[in-house]
Design a protein around this nucleic acid. Structure first.
Lengths: 342, 342
DNA sequence: CTGAAAGCGCTTACAG
DNA sequence: CTGAAAGCGCTTACAG
């Protein structure tokens, strides 16, 4: 790899000191009252040599990297692809670059990534946490590293958070199904310790209003076979289930595949509802009724909150004002299709 | 943000010099014959203080960051999600971290990302290039920055490359359609300067063997309306088209949506073939016939090739042996469904 | 207006 | 066996 041109190279060319070059190239020429002609020469030479500052050196000195780390649960989730772009654009607008890390929903990888990113001096983190990540969050708090959780939070650990009100949306979805005339509504969720997912079950259960619950919990590692089994069971004659509500897009798609191969008619035999959106719904013969998270808004707000956090961190020094954690709950919107007998 | 513990902190605690600490913590205690007891103490103290080396400082000194940059065309492509995991795992196996950048298929963003990543001292780049990126590639060559292109290459610029043989696969796909009895095969591709896509058209055209070509070129920015128009036209009475072959997964999905809403029966009315795989195919009533790229293998090979490149770069110094660029063409496999009257 | 110097946290040849 | 010193490329208070 060819050597990059450094401040020193420019200084030598022009015949001035490195400091002057630094001042001029950082736009401090006015403040430092650098000679006009010299400033001109420095800029011209920098241009001619295609000077690019070494960010590594810059951030070693400044303790700031103008980079934010984004750790996602899995790169191919609809949630991820929806949020990445918003975060990147918003970050760029503010002069930050985004570095993405992929935890594959694994706590060990999350731990690893957090440290890798901190050691590379990201200025802050936006995190879609993995299951049981409480201690990782505590660590970030202890080290006073600016961070914002999105999508998933932990009731036992106060922190900055942006996401949706899972309880409320699940509740409203069931109300909607009831209004469509469904009288035996099943809910297919993961068997999980994730708070945001448990909130969805809670919303489902409370909205049932006397209907007998049909909650089916799927083991994540075996989700394909478990969903298949659940769908088969729920649509079998004795059960009388007339609506299946899936707690995530992955579950919904897997469920739909199984419903298709079982030749279940939607919505005639059972109504179908998904908590999340999925690209794949477009190829199903019936428009699928689902809720849509405000991914764009989550991303933009997360960057905003994080940058404020970074800003605060800079100012404080040794102040004693107690830390204020902020939570922002946004709303999902109903996308009414024709899969619930609308 | 709390100050991180540095080598100096450890040195002070133990009462030795920073150099000793550095030697021990980097595993050079044997080579440097550091006193056993001292080494023990240093390690214990590092442990106790949860020492984590500052990678920024490390790479400023070593000129190596143990990071590779991956620039993708668009984060939500099937190609991207398929390749990211393989690249991350393979990189990790070799002690490298992957930083992902998203060009959104935009040449300006690609340019920007290349520089951002270089300035952050990535040791090398794996790039899914945007259209007309020749000059960016030339720049990398000139600067002797290790890089490997994947998926897309430029016939006018020699470089390292790993991808599939687009011509050959398109050719074989058409042969397959002919064997299924299709006599009027259309091909829907982008109107593009991308070599890999033009190769697909070339493969299609040459395999037709006397059939009159039905090549439809879609303007990328208007692909939804253009695909809709093309599908409508191709399936209209006079045309007699009995098979549509789509050049990418995005085109295929958009095409399929339109075929569905036009109530075209697949494969009875027209056969349907896709050059690439898509998750969404799973929800279509008929298993979709398509080719599958060896994404895993592309990712693993790309990391391997890049690391060799990085290694070479280190060794050379001022040698004169001319640069050898390597190309690796892998094969896609046919996934025969039932959308081509199989 | 300009330059010499210190320092960010690390590595590593060199001297002892 | 161990420490002082130089240097990676930059920033910035300080002196003149």
């Amino acid at each position: 790899m060819k050597k990059n041109v450094s401040l020193k190279d420019i200084a030598n060319q022009v015949g001035v000191s490195v400091s002057l070059v630094s001042y001029v190239l950082n736009g401090h020429e006015k403040k430092m009252r650098v000679g006009e002609e010299i400033a001109r020469q420095i800029k011209a030479t920098a241009e001619r040599l295609h000077y690019r500052p070494n960010q590594i050196a810059k951030s070693l000195k400044s303790k700031k990297s103008q980079t934010i780390g984004l750790i996602v649960g899995e790169i191919h989730y609809r949630f991820t692809t929806g949020i990445v772009r918003a975060i990147e654009l918003e970050a760029k607008k503010n002069g930050y670059t985004v570095v993405i890390g992929n935890s594959h929903e694994d706590l060990g990888s999350l731990h690893e990534l957090i440290h890798v990113l901190i050691n590379r001096q990201v200025d802050g983190l936006i995190i879609v946490a993995a299951e049981n990540a409480e201690s990782e969050i505590e660590y970030l708090k202890k080290k006073e590293i600016p961070f914002v959780l999105i999508d998933r939070n932990f009731p036992s650990v106060e922190s900055n958070f942006i996401g949706i009100d899972n309880y409320r949306i699940a509740y409203r979805a069931v109300e909607y199904l009831i209004r469509q005339g469904c009288r035996r509504i099943a809910f297919v969720n993961y068997d999980t310790t994730f708070f945001h997912l448990k909130e969805r079950s809670r919303g489902y259960l409370e909205a049932l209003k006397g209907q007998e619950p049909l909650l089916r919990e799927i083991r994540k590692p075996f989700y394909e076979q478990d969903v298949a089994a659940a769908v088969r069971e729920l649509t079998s004659p004795g059960v009388g289930c007339d609506a299946i509500f899936f707690a995530t897009d992955t579950l919904a798609i897997t469920g739909l595949k199984n419903l298709i191969s079982l030749r279940v008619n939607i919505p005639e035999d059972v109504a179908f509802m998904s908590f999340d959106e999925a690209e794949a719904f477009a190829l199903f013969q019936v428009p699928v009724t689902h809720y849509r998270q405000p991914l764009e808004e989550i991303g933009v707000s997360a960057v905003g909150m994080l940058l404020e956090e970074i800003q605060d961190g800079k100012e404080d020094g040794r102040d004693v004002k107690p830390k204020k954690w902020r939570q922002l709950y946004l709303d999902s919107t109903l996308v009414a299709g024709k899969s619930c007998r609308e």
